[in-house]
Simulated scan of single mutants.
Amino acid sequence: MPTTDDFGQGVSIASLTDAPDAAKLARDIVNGIAARSVMRFASASARSAALTAPAEGMTTWLVAEGRLEIYHIGSWLAWPPPAVQTFQVSDAPYNQTQVTVDYSVSAWPRAVFVAPPSGRAYVTVSAGISNTNTDTSTIWAAWRATGNLGFAYTNLTRTGLSAQGRRVVGSRRLMLTGMTAGETITVIPQWNISSGGASTSETFGGALLVEPAP
Rank of each mutant, 00 (worst) to 15 (best):
E65C: 06
A34G: 14
A46D: 12
L161W: 01
L176C: 06
I193Q: 03
G150A: 00
N133E: 15
G150Q: 00
T52V: 15
T159N: 09
P81D: 12
S12Q: 08
R172V: 11
E183A: 09
A142G: 03
R120G: 03
G182I: 14
T186N: 10
T86D: 07
A142D: 06
E69P: 04
I73C: 13
E65Y: 07
I29K: 08
G160S: 01
T3S: 09
A152E: 11
R144A: 10
I33V: 15
V169H: 04
F7I: 01
A213N: 13
I188N: 06
A107L: 04
F87K: 10
L208W: 00
M58P: 14
Y122F: 12
S43V: 01
A53N: 11
S15M: 10
Q164P: 00
T146V: 08
S37P: 02
T86K: 03
F87V: 09
I188K: 11
V112I: 04
G150W: 00
N148F: 12
A111T: 02
L209K: 12
W61N: 01
N95H: 15
T203G: 07
S106N: 10
Y153C: 04
S104E: 01
L51I: 04
R173Q: 14
T59A: 15
G32R: 12
H72D: 14
I13W: 06
G74D: 03
E69M: 10
A83L: 02
A115K: 03
P212R: 01
I33D: 05
W79C: 10
M39H: 09
E69T: 06
G178C: 06
Q85V: 07
M175Q: 14
S104W: 00
S195W: 12
Q88M: 00
A145N: 12
V168F: 10
T100G: 11
G150S: 00
P93Q: 04
R172N: 08
A55M: 12
F113K: 06
E56V: 12
R67M: 07
G182W: 14
N31Q: 14
R36C: 02
T100W: 10
F41D: 14
W191R: 07
W143T: 13
R158G: 15
S171R: 06
Y153I: 02
T146G: 11
L62V: 00
T184I: 04
G206F: 02
E183Y: 15
R47M: 02
F151Q: 13
A50S: 06
D6Y: 08
F151E: 13
T100Q: 11
A163M: 07
V84D: 09
P54W: 13
V114T: 13
D6M: 11
S195R: 13
G74I: 01
A141Y: 08
S126R: 07
R167I: 09
G160L: 00
W79G: 11
L161C: 01
G66P: 02
E183L: 10
T17P: 08
G197H: 08
T136A: 11
I188Q: 11
T159M: 10
P81C: 06
S90D: 13
V38P: 00
A64C: 05
P54N: 02
S12G: 09
A163H: 05
Q98E: 15
A163I: 09
T136I: 14
M39S: 10
Y71I: 02
A44D: 13
S195V: 12
I70W: 13
D5C: 00
M179G: 03
A23R: 08
G57N: 15
T200V: 06
F7T: 01
Y94K: 05
V105N: 09
G10L: 00
G182Q: 09
M179D: 06
T59F: 04
S90Q: 09
